[in-house]
Simulated assay, not measured.
Amino acid sequence: MNAVRRGLGNGVVQAFLVVVGLVWMTPLAGLFLSSLRSAEDTAKGGWWTVFSSPGQLSFDNYSSLLQNAGITQAFWNTVLISVPTTVLVVVIAALAGYAFAWLDFPGREAIFLVVVALLVVPVQIGLLPVAKLFGQLGLFGTIPGVVLFHVAYGLPFAVFLLRNYFAEMPKEMLEAARMDGGSEWRIFTRLVLPVGRPAIASLAIFQFLWVWNDMLVALLFADSSSQPLTVELQSQIRQFGSNIDVLAPGAFVSLVVPVVVFFAFQRHFVQGVMAGSVK
Rank of each mutant, 00 (worst) to 15 (best):
residue 69 A to F: 06
residue 72 T to G: 07
residue 92 I to V: 15
residue 81 I to A: 06
residue 93 A to C: 03
residue 95 L to F: 15
residue 85 T to E: 04
residue 63 S to G: 15
residue 62 Y to G: 11
residue 93 A to D: 01
residue 75 F to H: 07
residue 75 F to P: 02
residue 73 Q to N: 12
residue 86 T to M: 13
residue 62 Y to K: 12
residue 95 L to D: 11
residue 66 L to M: 14
residue 77 N to K: 08
residue 74 A to W: 02
residue 74 A to L: 09
residue 62 Y to L: 12
residue 94 A to F: 11
residue 86 T to C: 06
residue 87 V to I: 15
residue 84 P to V: 11
residue 84 P to W: 05
residue 81 I to C: 04
residue 94 A to Q: 05
residue 87 V to L: 15
residue 96 A to T: 00
residue 79 V to L: 08
residue 86 T to L: 03
residue 76 W to T: 09
residue 93 A to R: 04
residue 80 L to P: 08
residue 67 Q to M: 14
residue 87 V to F: 13
residue 95 L to S: 10
residue 74 A to M: 02
residue 83 V to Q: 06
residue 95 L to P: 02
residue 82 S to T: 15
residue 70 G to M: 01
residue 76 W to E: 00
residue 86 T to F: 01
residue 85 T to Y: 11
residue 99 A to R: 10
residue 75 F to D: 06
residue 75 F to E: 02
residue 70 G to D: 13
residue 99 A to T: 14
residue 63 S to H: 10
residue 90 V to N: 09
residue 68 N to W: 12
residue 86 T to Y: 08
residue 86 T to R: 01
residue 66 L to K: 06
residue 85 T to V: 11
residue 85 T to G: 05
residue 81 I to Y: 01
residue 75 F to N: 01
residue 100 F to L: 10
residue 83 V to G: 06
residue 73 Q to M: 08
residue 73 Q to E: 10
residue 72 T to D: 02
residue 84 P to A: 11
residue 97 G to I: 07
residue 81 I to M: 13
residue 79 V to C: 05
residue 87 V to Y: 06
residue 87 V to D: 11
residue 72 T to W: 13
residue 92 I to P: 13
residue 96 A to N: 09
residue 65 L to S: 03
residue 66 L to T: 06
residue 91 V to S: 05
residue 72 T to L: 14
residue 75 F to Y: 13
residue 69 A to I: 11
residue 63 S to Q: 14
residue 64 S to M: 07
residue 70 G to V: 06
residue 77 N to H: 05
residue 62 Y to S: 11
residue 97 G to Y: 03
residue 80 L to T: 04
residue 69 A to W: 03
residue 96 A to Y: 06
residue 88 L to H: 00
residue 88 L to D: 03
residue 88 L to G: 05
residue 63 S to I: 14
residue 76 W to R: 09
residue 77 N to L: 10
residue 77 N to P: 00
residue 64 S to N: 15
residue 82 S to Y: 03
residue 96 A to C: 12
residue 93 A to P: 02
residue 71 I to P: 04
residue 70 G to T: 10
residue 68 N to F: 07
residue 76 W to M: 12
residue 82 S to K: 08
residue 83 V to Y: 09
residue 71 I to L: 14
residue 65 L to E: 01
residue 96 A to S: 13
residue 92 I to H: 02
residue 97 G to W: 07
residue 74 A to E: 02
residue 84 P to N: 07
residue 89 V to G: 05
residue 90 V to R: 01
residue 97 G to L: 06
residue 84 P to C: 12
residue 82 S to G: 13
residue 95 L to E: 06
residue 99 A to N: 09
residue 90 V to S: 10
residue 62 Y to H: 12
residue 80 L to G: 05
residue 85 T to F: 11
residue 88 L to N: 08
residue 74 A to D: 00
